[in-house]
Each structure stands twice: as C-alpha cells, then as structure tokens.
Design a protein around this nucleic acid. Structure first.
Lengths: 207, 207
DNA sequence: CGATAATATGAGCTTTCACTCGCATAAAAT
DNA sequence: ATTTTATGCGAGTGAAAGCTCATATTATCG
C-alpha cells in the first residue's frame, strides 16, 4: 500500500471560498518563513497571518511540513518556468551563446524572490528530497544534459554525465552565491560581466 | 558594551576532569547530530550520550547553539589544516599544478567526516554567520586570493576579486556536491578524473 | 584533617508548539 | 424551506524541549 507522504495536501478545496483560503495560507507561509525563519514559523502564527484559524489550516494541510512543501513547489514552478524557457531558446543556439542564455536565466531565476529562496535553500533540506529546492536542481540538471546530448557533435566530451555535473553544479553555485552572498555583483553593469565570466568558465571547459 | 554572543562557552574548564567532560560533550554532540539531526538533538539526549548530566552541560555551554558552534569550530579547524597545507604546497607550483593540489585537498577535506559535514552544512546556517560552515569558505577564499595575487604575472586576469569568486565558488561547490550527492564519483579511479576535470575547468578559465 | 572551591547531578519548571475536536456558519442540493 | 454538505472557528491538550537550582560529590591546599 502506497504510504501517503505526510506532505500531501489533506483535502482538495472545491469551492472558491476554500481555494482562496488555501492560497492565503501558502502566501502567508512564505511571508512568515521569510520574516521569522523555519523554526519560528509556527502554524498558529501562519494561520493568523493568513487571517484564518488553525483549524482551517489543518483542514487542508496535515502538517507544517506540508505547508512548506507547498511553498517550495510553487517557488520551484516559478523558477523552472524561466529555466525551461531559456533552454528552449538555447536549443537552436551555438554552444557559447546557449551557455550565456542559461547563465543569464539562472541569475534571473534566483532573483525572483531571493529572501524566500535563501530560507528554503538553507533551512529545509531535511524535508524529504522530493520537496527540497534540490529537486529543482535535478530537473535543471536533466534538461541541461538533454541539451548536451543533442549537441554532442560540437563538443569533444566523451563523458556527458560528468560534463553535465561539472557545468550544472558550477552554474548553480555561482548564481546562488552571487544572489545570496554578493548582491553587489548584481548591479546591471556587474551582472553582465558576471554572466560573461561564468560563460567563459563553462565554455572554456566544454571547448 | 560588547554583547557576549550566546554561542560563547560559559566557563573555562580548569581541572583535567572537567576538560574531559567538555570533550565528551562536543564529541557526543557530533555523534547525536549525525544520528538524529539538529532538531532532534536535544540537550538531554546529548548529555546522556556523553555520560554526563544536563546540569554539567549547561555549566560549560550556555545553549544548544553554543554546543553546536563548538562542533563546527572543531570541524572547521580540521578542514582548514588540510587546505592551508595544500595552499602552502601550491605556493611554489605553477598554476595548473597548484589548482590540482587545491582541488585534491578540497576533496580530501570534505572526506574527513562527510556525514557530519552534511548535517552542519544543511542544518546550521541559521546560527550566526561566525559559526557557520560558511566561515570556512571565507577563510579558504582569502587564502586562495592571496595565492592569485602573488602569482598575478602568470595570469591574464584584471579583476582578481572576481576570479577568486569564480574559482573558489566552483571548486567548493564541485567537491561539496560530489561528496554529498555523488559518492559514486569518489572511488579512487573516478576521484582522479574528477580532480582532472575540475582542474581543467578552473585552469581553462584562468588561462 | 579541615575548609574552600570546583565539578557533577537530575528532578522539575516553564514555555512553546503541533495538532484535535466540538461546534458554528455558509453554500449546495433536494 | 429544509436538509446535507462544505468550510471555518479557536480554546484546549499533550508532548517535548531548553534550561535552572538545590544538593551532592570530588579535588585542592594550608
């Protein structure tokens, strides 16, 4: 019997009223997470911030983790939209331009809601791997690997698996670190040179 | 007035007996962190695992955070010893060999106690930045930047700050990811090719 | 030995927090 | 209009965790 993950929603909201309750809860969770951090984000506080009672909260989410999982899911969906779009554009581009497109998209994606991204990245990896921000990395990883495979003639890389690991990990780390620890690198002028340098790094590696 | 950080030790241990109590506590904290994770590592459990009473624990550590900070400090000290040593060796080496030395050291360092490293990296960044694993990154960053400055003639990089960021971030991320998420890459044979590839990435960037 | 300081003990206090449950209200169905 | 279902409420419960303190044991020193 497939054990129902404890992050699954408890009940589908069918009426418009309850759907807006669910939305308010997810939205409030994101706000409280940013304001107070994971540990201090109590379900009571979240419910209050959403203008809803704790009882209602537990009608739709079986646990605090489920609530956070919903926030992560929404955030990941937003980021993935950008990355997918970029990789679709990159498909028809030569390697160098493709990498540039991807790097720029990675930065743009991290800029959607940096404060939330930070909290999710730093304080939630112990929630099941399916919900973590890491899930996003894995998806991006797969997409990028697809690109490399379809363009393997223009590369001199025997081991695409390894190449994907090196490139995806580096790009993710650089954009992540820039957004979280070095916001000074993201003024419009500096952001451009960052994109160029990261592109040089990766393209130089791929030849 | 300099506010005493709540991660400072509470009292110096003077007799040999108490010093061994403190050691046992730090050691036990590391074990429990690995076994149960940060959240479930209660001070009572830690004291019990150390064969010591909670009261004694609070005689030397004002909070759970202080205890964890001590573990981080010890772990960082161990890692830094390896990195310092490597960068000392690298000092007299040409760029390519120097980078190889550093990458190999980074992997070796991450292998000291991977399980503990994972817990500390994933579950403690919300403790003050002074105690985080990030402190280690910053130190390494500074050391590496020193190397680049002393060898700037053999590089064609105008902006050493940026170059340090790109290289240090990439190396850290690659070794971190390999140790934590891809242990299959660390069989002796594969580890060597990983070192070579990471070296190619960075050296290619530095020219 | 006797006295003082250092160290160790662990029952229990306090607080916080996730979560429940009985009941009220609003929408849908009949 | 009446019944049925969906949604909302929030005081209260039980468990867990951080931390204290009154007391006991051990070491140090004159």
């Amino acid at each position: 019997m497939a054990a129902r993950a404890l992050t699954d929603p408890r009940k589908r909201a069918s009426q418009a009223r309850s759907r807006s309750t669910v939305d308010a809860l997810i939205e409030a969770t994101a706000r409280i997470l940013v304001r107070d951090g994971f540990d201090r984000a109590s379900t009571n506080r979240i419910a209050e911030a959403a203008g809803v009672s704790v009882g209602s909260l537990y009608q739709y989410f079986p646990s605090k983790e489920a609530l956070v999982a919903a926030v992560i899911e929404r955030h990941n969906r937003d980021l993935l939209r950008i990355v997918r779009r970029a990789l679709a554009d990159a498909e028809s581009q030569p390697v160098e331009q493709a990498v540039r497109t991807l790097v720029a998209a990675a930065i743009a994606a991290h800029r959607i809601d940096p404060k939330l991204h930070r909290v999710l990245a730093e304080q939630t990896p112990h929630l099941g791997p399916a919900q973590t921000v890491g899930a996003l990395d894995r998806e991006t990883y797969a997409l990028f690997r697809g690109y490399l495979e379809r363009h393997r003639e223009s590369l001199r890389m025997p081991d695409l698996e390894l190449a994907t690991f090196i490139c995806a990990t580096s790009i993710e780390a650089l954009t992540h670190a820039a957004v979280l620890h070095r916001p000074d690198m993201l003024t419009d002028a500096d952001a451009e040179t960052l994109v160029e340098e990261a592109t040089r790094l990766v393209v130089g590696y791929l030849r």
